Simulated scan of single mutants.
Amino acid sequence: MNIKILSRNSDLYSTKRLVEAAEKRKHQVEVIDHLKCDLVIEKRKPSIVYKGESLTEVDAIIPRIGASVTFYGTAVVRQFEMMGAFSTVDSEALIRSRDKLRSLQVLSKAKIGLPKTVFTNYSRDVEGVINRVGGTPLVVKLLEGTQGLGVVLAETKNAAKSVIEAFNGLKARVIVQEFIKEAKGADVRVFIVDGHVVGAMKRQGKEGEFRSNLHQGGKAEVIELSDDEEIAAIRAAKAMKLGVAGVDMLQSSRGPLILEVNSSPGLEGIEKATGKDIAKTIIRYIEKNV
């Protein structure tokens, strides 16, 4: 098969592992920078020009689209889909997953456990917002934040009011969420491929840090999921219509609570924590569908 990996950096761990896995299974694979693709849109013959040449006979693509270039990256994915290529991440699912508010609404509609969340149109009733998530401590998240950036823990009512009012004053869109104390600064990342759990790890924030992201200095270890956690992760990926997904959840006293469903989950943390060849599983997912 002819597989294209949409990535802006061929030296990234995830990109290199996917290339290696595809080549091991005797596929033709190439990394292309989606921002350097020109889209030719015409009746019956949509095409993509990359470095002056038309990309033809592409069987499948693996999108590794960064959050900052979602708009153009998704347009490239959509163009490949129009050309008949299979994508491990559907273009519409990619857009849906990048909208944090929409994602939470989709998960809520699917009756999946979530931390209590409030979103307003820069409401002046800040105290009411705080009370609706159960008071402090609480978490304030920028809708455009990634990898733990733009996430603030407000431990007192005064701190919460100051943070929310500051973001409102800057016209920065935020969501306010309840703080799950019993999670103890840890979350669980579940890797889903084709509706199945292929790996899971527990990420623990560094000392004094409530964010568990590995980019923020957190540590990861393999974890065996409970039945409820496994079911919640699979249902979340299905609700978001993602064939490949990283589902982040908190372990709470009322069961697993989904934080986010990531459409471009990194492979380094999960492969090193579990010792599993996740890249190979993604290539086999392509083989099954092409």
Rank of each mutant, 00 (worst) to 15 (best):
R284S: 06
G145D: 08
A183G: 02
V76K: 00
I270K: 03
N289K: 14
I286R: 08
N131Y: 11
K4G: 00
E268M: 11
N289Y: 09
A22M: 11
F179L: 05
G217W: 04
I282S: 09
L250Y: 05
I258M: 08
S103F: 05
G269M: 01
V49G: 01
F86P: 03
A245M: 06
L153P: 12
Q216W: 08
D228C: 02
Y122S: 09
K219V: 14
V188K: 04
V77P: 08
T56H: 15
R78Y: 12
S253Y: 00
G205P: 08
V188N: 03
S252M: 03
A279W: 07
K202V: 05
R203Q: 02
D59K: 04
E30Y: 03
G73C: 01
K111D: 14
K24Q: 10
D59N: 05
R203W: 10
I130K: 07
A110L: 03
T70M: 11
S123N: 07
R96P: 00
K26G: 00
R64P: 01
I32Y: 04
D38I: 13
N121H: 15
K280S: 09
K280Q: 08
G269V: 01
N9A: 02
L107K: 00
H34Y: 14
A232V: 15
V31M: 11
K184Q: 07
L18K: 04
S47Y: 01
K100I: 05
E271M: 08
V139M: 06
S10E: 15
V89F: 03
I164V: 14
K36G: 07
S97E: 10
Q147K: 10
E165C: 08
E182K: 06
R124I: 14
R96H: 05
A110M: 06
G145R: 08
R17I: 01
E127F: 10
Q105T: 14
V140L: 14
S162D: 13
L18I: 13
K45A: 07
Q79M: 15
R124E: 07
I130F: 10
K16T: 12
A159R: 14
L104S: 13
G217I: 04
V40W: 12
S123T: 10
I286F: 11
R132D: 15
K288L: 09
A236P: 02
K280G: 04
V133G: 01
A85D: 00
E271P: 07
R25W: 03
E271C: 03
V261K: 06
E260W: 11
D248E: 06
Y50M: 13
V106T: 12
L143T: 09
I48C: 06
I283C: 01
G275M: 12
V126G: 12
L12E: 11
E155V: 00
T156H: 06
G269A: 02
L55K: 07
K184D: 05
S91G: 06
E224K: 15
A22H: 09
K36R: 13
V190G: 09
P137C: 08
E178K: 11
G218D: 07
I65T: 04
D248P: 10
S263D: 07
L250D: 00
A21N: 09
